[in-house]
Simulated assay, not measured.
Amino acid sequence: MKLRRAFKRSADPERARREVIDEAIGSFRETGEWPADLGKRAAKAYLEALEGESEYRALSEAEQRLRYEKEDIRDICADDALSYLGGRLADVLSEAKTAGAALDGVRNADEAIQAGGDALDSFRALTALLKDFENIRSAQWDILRAVADEDTRAKLRLWKSQGHGEVMGFRPDEVPPFVLDATQTQRYTVAYLVWLANVGTGYVPASLGELEADVMATNEPTAYDDGGRLVDISPIAVPIPTPPAAETYSHSRAAQLDYSAPTPPPIKPNATPGDPTPPTYIY
Rank of each mutant, 00 (worst) to 15 (best):
267 I>M: 03
263 T>L: 13
41 R>H: 11
71 E>H: 02
128 A>P: 01
214 D>C: 03
68 Y>G: 11
235 P>E: 11
276 P>G: 05
115 A>N: 05
129 L>C: 02
137 R>L: 08
129 L>M: 11
256 Q>I: 00
210 E>C: 05
78 A>I: 10
30 E>R: 15
11 A>H: 06
15 R>P: 03
135 N>H: 12
240 I>V: 10
212 E>C: 05
267 I>D: 00
185 T>C: 01
249 Y>M: 12
228 G>P: 11
146 A>S: 12
137 R>V: 04
161 S>P: 00
2 K>W: 04
27 S>F: 07
77 C>H: 03
109 A>L: 12
89 L>S: 02
198 N>V: 04
152 T>I: 03
145 R>N: 00
155 K>W: 00
279 P>A: 15
95 E>W: 01
65 R>V: 10
42 A>R: 12
219 N>A: 03
280 T>L: 15
74 R>W: 03
117 G>L: 13
11 A>N: 10
259 Y>A: 00
49 A>R: 14
49 A>K: 08
75 D>N: 10
243 P>I: 06
120 L>R: 10
168 M>S: 04
149 D>C: 02
212 E>W: 08
218 T>A: 15
36 A>C: 01
158 L>V: 00
151 D>R: 13
264 P>R: 13
128 A>N: 09
19 E>D: 11
170 F>G: 03
119 A>S: 15
91 D>F: 06
103 L>H: 00
190 V>M: 06
160 K>I: 00
261 A>I: 02
219 N>L: 14
160 K>M: 01
250 S>R: 14
30 E>G: 01
228 G>F: 12
220 E>W: 07
5 R>N: 12
136 I>S: 08
210 E>D: 13
25 I>K: 13
131 K>F: 04
272 T>A: 15
257 L>W: 03
129 L>W: 04
140 Q>L: 10
119 A>E: 14
129 L>T: 02
164 H>M: 04
52 G>D: 12
74 R>M: 13
37 D>R: 09
115 A>R: 15
214 D>E: 05
175 V>P: 04
247 E>F: 06
199 V>P: 06
54 S>G: 11
189 T>M: 09
32 G>V: 09
111 E>S: 08
244 P>L: 06
245 A>N: 13
87 G>V: 02
166 E>G: 02
81 A>S: 09
231 V>D: 10
195 W>H: 08
18 R>S: 03
4 R>Q: 09
258 D>N: 05
49 A>Y: 05
167 V>N: 02
183 T>A: 03
37 D>N: 06
178 F>E: 14
240 I>F: 03
176 P>W: 02
168 M>R: 14
6 A>V: 04
262 P>K: 10
121 D>R: 12
29 R>K: 08
21 I>C: 06
151 D>H: 01
62 A>I: 11
35 P>G: 06
139 A>P: 02
55 E>F: 07
84 Y>T: 13
